[in-house]
Every structure is written in C-alpha cells, then in structure tokens.
Design a binder for these strands. Structure first.
Length: 569
DNA sequence: GCCGTTTTCGGCCCGACTGTTTTCAGTCG
C-alpha cells in the first residue's frame, strides 16, 4: 500500500465528514494526517507492518494510528466505506465547483436530494437552487457557469508554465507608473513542481493601476473578481491568478503571507501568538502598533526567525533547522559547474556533440557528459556496443577541438525488465560516466523493480541512477519502489542519485532528495537535454534541490571536474 | 482528532470577497 493511497483515504474521509457537518478541526486533523503521510518518504505501510509507532509522525495520534493500521492490514477503512454508502460520489464532485463548499453541498444533498453534477445542473436550470434559504439568483448562475469546470479535471500547471506566466506578468506590472514593487508569491514562488493557481503581489498607492493593467494583459481572458485590494482573473491558459495590492509598508508582510505555504504560516502565526504578537498580511503587530512589515526579513526577524528561502516554507524541517542554528545556504543555479545527462543526434537528440558542448560552454558550464540512449530504447535510436564505441571516438575528437569545456564519454544505459543491464560490463567499464535508468516495465511488481535497481546499484560500473522512479509529473506514477532500500544500497555502493531537472520529471522529488541527502548520497542535478536549448531547465532542478534543503556540498556537480571525479567509485 | 513545560481540557491563523443579508455565512487562500 502506497503512502498516497492511505492519504487519499483520509482526504476522502475529510470531504465526507465535512459534508456531514463534522467538527471543522476534526476534519482538519484528517487533512493534516493525509499531508504528513503523502510527504513522508518511507513507506507508512511497511513502517506499520513492522510494528513502528505511527504516533511519532506529526498530526497522527492514537486514533489515526489505529485507522492507518486498519487500512494497511485490511486494505480498506470501515468507516470510510460506510460513509461512501451514505454519500454518493456525485455529491463529492460538487465540492470541485468553484464557490461551492461543504455547507452548500450539504444543502444540495440533504434538502434537495441531489446526487450528481447533472442533477445539480438540472435543479439550477429549473430555478430550484435560488429558492433555497441563503441562496439567490447569483449563486444559481455561478453554479451553472462553474459546473463545467468541475466536470473537467482541474489540471495543475507545471512550474515551468507557472513561472513563464507569473514572471512575465510581474515584469509588465513593474513597468507601470506608481508600481513600486511586484513579485510572484504562492506555490510558484515556493517552486512547487506544479501550481493550481498563481499569486502576484504589488505595492502601489492606486490599486486601479495594476488592476486595470492586469485586466487588459494579453495573458488574461476574464476578470472573475475585483475588490479594493484583491483581483482574481482567469488566464487564457485556463489558470486563475490572484493579484493583491498592498501599501509599501506592508509589502514584506503580504509577500510572506501570500507565499505560504498555509502550513508554514500556521506555525508562524502560532509562534507570533506565543510572543504576544499578531501577524497578518499587513504586518506584525503588538496591539495596534505595527512593528514590522516592509520586508520579509523584518517580519521574520520580529518573530526571532531567519528569513526562510521560499522553497523551504512547507513546515517540514525549516523550523527545526532554524532552531538548530543559521539556515544552511541552499544550492543556486550559479553553483552548477557541470551537466551530466544529455543526448545528441547519435540517439534522439537534436544537436551534435560539438553543438551541445558549445551551448553548454556558452552557459558557463565547465564540463558535460554525453549520455545517449542504449540499444533497448530502439525508438530513440539507442546505441549498441559497437555504435557506442564509435560514438565515444567522435566525442574524443570534439574534445580535442574545443577548449574551455571538458566532455565525458557517457551512456544512459537501460536496466532491462529481466534485471540485467542493456550493455555488457566490458563496454560500461570503458565509459567515463554511466547513468542507469528504468524506461520500460515500470508497472512491474515492487520485487522485480527492486531487483532491477539492485542489479544497477551493485554493478561496479554504474555511477548514478537517473530519474529513479520514472514518474512523469501529473501524468504517470513512478515505479513501485522501496526508496529507503534503494538509497541504502546506493549509499553502500557509492552510487549517486539524479535530480532530473526536466519539469515533466523532477525525479528525484524533493522528499526523496532530502532523504538521499540525509543518507549522504551525492546528488547530481542534470538537464537530460535533447537540444541546445535543453539546458534552460536546469533552474527547475535546482529549485527542486532547494526544496529538499540541498546545499553545494550535497550536489556533486557543483564541484570542479577534478573534485567531482574524486567522488566516483 | 491532535496537542501539550501557562497540559489531559480547551484551544486549533486570519482576512478579503461575494451574495444574501440588514449583520452575517460561506468560501477561498
């Protein structure tokens, strides 16, 4: 049983209890537990089966520990099954309609006996909704307008799309007369791998200036909401964006507040309360007096806290880190000296060896590894032993003709479904750099997946596991693997782990990368470039590493090539 | 339902916007 499956049970329970009017804090307890479980790297199921004390996890007490044991041992949750019988799934779908929450859904279900989005639509069209107490014509119209959005899965966008939109709009807002400061906030600023919506913060004396500009912005399709300080718009891409306008003396407090995460802010406010202070988006207050708010630094300093990098603000380890001393200095894009995963025209890349090397050099990289596919990946024109050896000779020629950048002869070698390597050991032994990867058979059972990964980790020539889980963000789950076991073996056999920087992969994810760091495994951030522009994605890999709390010393390719080589086995 | 050195009960972050009210509830972030 995967952690996400257990978390899903609790999320569902929370939704169902909410519709039934359960105590809001009880509902929150289920959501908190779901969040803890899905952000834990080790298998909760294994931990429970092996007799571990589940109450060690934050937000899980005696009762929820018992519920987890029930889910793990029986594969289901009796109370959840009971609630599901009482509340049809169509009722839960109603929660996805923007502007409709548990209270309204409760009215639809309990009083109007509506059990699906179709029935709700019919009721709204017949004018039944507007006649309910507390409802009116506008609510009914909003439901009809928004119900379509609930029918379509509300897709989150990748961090790459989010940054392109948010950074572009921020840049344009900064050009306006009267706009003093502007910044992206929210999950985009925290560099989460996907964003559900976008947040932008502006300081300006006249809120009409940025609001009118945003309403007319080429990215924007419609204005959904507009007040004195807050405007909500829908972008042409379908994503919604919140704009907040605050005075200059509150910009830092608002930036802190709207960057979140919600969980981080709950702790910040709790700490403020302990100090007899109040924190809101306008500042830190002692009584009615504002004592901080102009910058984020001021806000955190007023609470005795360091200014956390946004990537760490998830209430995972940041408060413990701050308590232990100065925050670690997280790795930055500028720290990266080499890129060790890329393709050329020899397999499925679009650039030649020389073109890729020149492009990397132009970006200030000091060394690269050319790592084309092995033969199993036939649709990508993967290389067999003889073509690979020929390819390496070509690389050596380019190496001699280009100065200012070192080029390693590498290979991205598939780990086959039968737990053998796609190329013989004597070939791998000749490589400067061997990335082992799973491409096929990702749905094999955990035992076989682990057997394959162990085959790679224990191979004396394998240097690193590339995109270890094989997941595609929002599109495909990774292979069912025991990450703790894999990382232990990697540490024992001096095999590194990749953070694949492509925004569709970002694999390892932040949680797994943090665990790898904890185990002392060197991590390499690689672009997996297939074109000369492919290096652009490096920034997303660095973001993911920062979310994992990684510093320069954790990331092997921040080192010079000489120092990097000393890490190889 | 969780949590705890102002503890085993009584808290649990806080404000903006909208719609339906005429002072507030629901939703959202």
């Amino acid at each position: 049983m995967k952690n996400d499956q257990i978390a899903e049970c609790f999320e569902l329970l929370a939704d169902l209890l909410e519709i039934q009017g359960a105590n809001a804090f009880r509902v929150r307890a289920y959501r908190n537990a779901a969040r803890t479980i899905s952000s834990t790297a080790e298998s909760i199921s294994d931990f429970s089966t092996q007799g571990g004390d589940l109450t060690e996890f934050a937000g899980i007490g005696r009762d929820l520990a018992k519920q987890i044991q029930e889910i793990v041992s029986t594969g289901q949750h009796a109370q959840l099954e009971e609630l599901k019988k009482q509340v049809p799934s169509g009722v839960l779908d109603m929660l996805r309609i923007p502007g409709v929450g548990p209270k309204k859904v409760a009215v639809f279900f309990n009083e109007l006996h509506l059990t699906s989005l179709d029935e709700l639509r019919a009721a709204a069209e017949a004018g039944v909704i507007a006649r309910q107490k507390g409802f009116g014509k506008k609510t009914e119209e909003a439901i009809l307008k928004n119900i379509q959005m609930a029918t379509e899965a509300s897709a989150r966008i990748s961090i790459a799309e989010a940054r392109a939109a948010a950074d572009g709009i921020v840049e344009d807002l900064l050009k306006l007369d009267g706009v003093k400061q502007a910044s992206a906030a929210g999950s985009c600023r925290r560099r989460k791998e996907t964003c559900g919506d976008l947040d932008i913060l502006v300081s300006c004396d006249d809120s009409d200036v940025p609001m009118n500009a945003l309403a007319a912005h080429p990215f924007v399709s419609e204005v959904l909401q507009q007040g004195d300080t807050k405007q909500r718009v829908r972008l042409k891409s379908g994503v919604e964006l919140d704009l907040r306008v605050v005075p200059e003396e509150s910009f830092g407090a608002a930036l802190q507040y709207f960057t979140g995460s919600k969980e981080h802010n709950v702790v910040v406010r709790g700490l403020a309360k302990d100090l007899g202070l109040k924190v809101n988006e306008y500042g830190v207050f002692r009584g009615d007096q504002q004592i901080a708010g102009r910058t984020e630094q001021d806000v955190y300093a007023a609470l005795g806290l360091p200014c956390f990098p946004p990537e760490l603000r998830e209430n995972r380890h940041e408060f413990a880190l701050a308590a232990a001393g100065p925050l670690p200095k997280l790795v930055t894009l500028e720290d990266i000296q080499g890129d060790l995963h890329m393709h050329t025209t020899a397999s499925d890349g679009m650039g030649t060896i020389a073109e890729m090397a020149e492009a990397a050099k132009a970006r200030g990289l000091k060394y690269i590894a050319i790592t084309d596919h092995s033969k199993r990946v036939s649709m990508a024109n993967g290389l067999d032993a003889s073509r690979l050896r020929q390819h390496w000779k070509e690389i050596e020629k380019v190496r001699e003709s280009i100065s200012g950048i070192e080029i390693l002869c590498g290979i991205e070698c598939d780990i086959l479904e039968d737990a053998t390597m796609d190329l013989p050991d004597d070939v791998l032994a000749e490589a400067d750099w061997v990335i082992a990867v799973l491409h096929y058979g990702l749905k094999q059972p955990r035992e076989q997946i682990m057997k394959r990964l162990m085959c790679a980790v224990t191979n004396p020539h394998v240097d690193i596991i590339g995109h270890p889980t094989g997941r595609l963000v929002g599109r495909r789950e990774g292979a069912d693997l025991n990450i703790v076991e894999l990382l232990k073996a990697a540490a024992d056999h001096r095999v590194m782990m990749e953070i694949n920087a492509h925004p569709k992969r970002l694999d390892l994810d932040d949680i797994h990368a943090a665990l790898a760091k904890e185990m002392g495994i060197p991590i390499v951030i690689s672009t997996d470039s297939h074109t000369v522009n492919g290096f652009d994605v490096l920034t997303f890999g660095v973001d993911q590493a920062r979310r994992a709390g990684l510093t320069c010393s954790d990331v092997a390719n921040t080192r010079s090539l000489k120092d990097f080589r000393s890490l190889l086995k």
